[in-house]
Deep mutational scan, measured.
Amino acid sequence: MQIFVKTLTGKTITLEVEPSDTIENVKAKIQDKEGIPPDQQRSIFAGKQLEDGRTLSDYNIQKESTLHLVLR
């Protein structure tokens, strides 16, 4: 499925993911596309910070959902 990741600069990245993917996985995909190390990424969805060990389905993130990426 496709999800979108919006950065603070307003750029939107499209990722191909599975509901079973962990947040860690997703951060690795963002690193592949953007070169941002996962330890600098904070992902926010529906106002909640997403934890690395959880999966997209844990957070009820579905296709075409938009995550927000904040850098630390």
Rank of each mutant, 00 (worst) to 15 (best):
V26K: 00
Q31D: 06
K63W: 06
T14V: 13
D39P: 08
L67N: 00
T14S: 10
N60I: 03
Q2D: 04
Y59V: 01
N25Q: 14
V70F: 11
K11W: 09
G47K: 05
E16M: 13
L71D: 06
K11A: 08
T12G: 02
Q41C: 11
T66M: 08
Q49Y: 15
Q31W: 15
K27Y: 11
S20K: 07
S43M: 15
I61A: 01
P38C: 09
Q41I: 15
Q31C: 11
I30L: 08
T22V: 04
I36G: 09
G10Q: 03
D21G: 02
L67P: 01
L15V: 07
Q62H: 11
E34T: 15
I23R: 01
L50P: 01
L50H: 02
I36Y: 13
G35N: 07
T22I: 04
K33W: 11
K33F: 10
N25I: 14
N60C: 05
G47T: 05
P37T: 08
N60S: 07
T7K: 02
E51W: 05
V70G: 06
T9Q: 11
Q31H: 14
S65H: 07
D52S: 07
I23N: 01
Q2G: 04
S20D: 11
D58T: 05
F4L: 04
V5F: 05
K63D: 12
G47M: 05
I13C: 03
T22P: 02
Y59Q: 03
R54F: 12
L8C: 15
V5P: 00
V26S: 00
S57F: 10
T7D: 05
L50N: 01
I23L: 08
L69M: 12
R72Q: 10
L15M: 04
G53C: 07
L69W: 03
I36M: 08
N25M: 15
T14N: 05
E18P: 03
F4G: 01
S65G: 05
D52W: 05
N25C: 09
Y59E: 02
P19Q: 07
D32Y: 10
A46G: 10
K48W: 09
V5D: 01
I13K: 00
D32K: 12
L8T: 13
T22R: 06
I13M: 05
Q31I: 08
I13W: 09
P37A: 11
S43C: 15
P19R: 06
R42V: 15
V26P: 01
P38E: 09
Q62C: 04
K63V: 07
V70W: 08
L69D: 00
R54P: 03
F4H: 07
K6E: 05
E34H: 10
E16L: 13
K27F: 11
D32I: 13
D21M: 10
T14Y: 06
I61L: 03
Y59G: 01
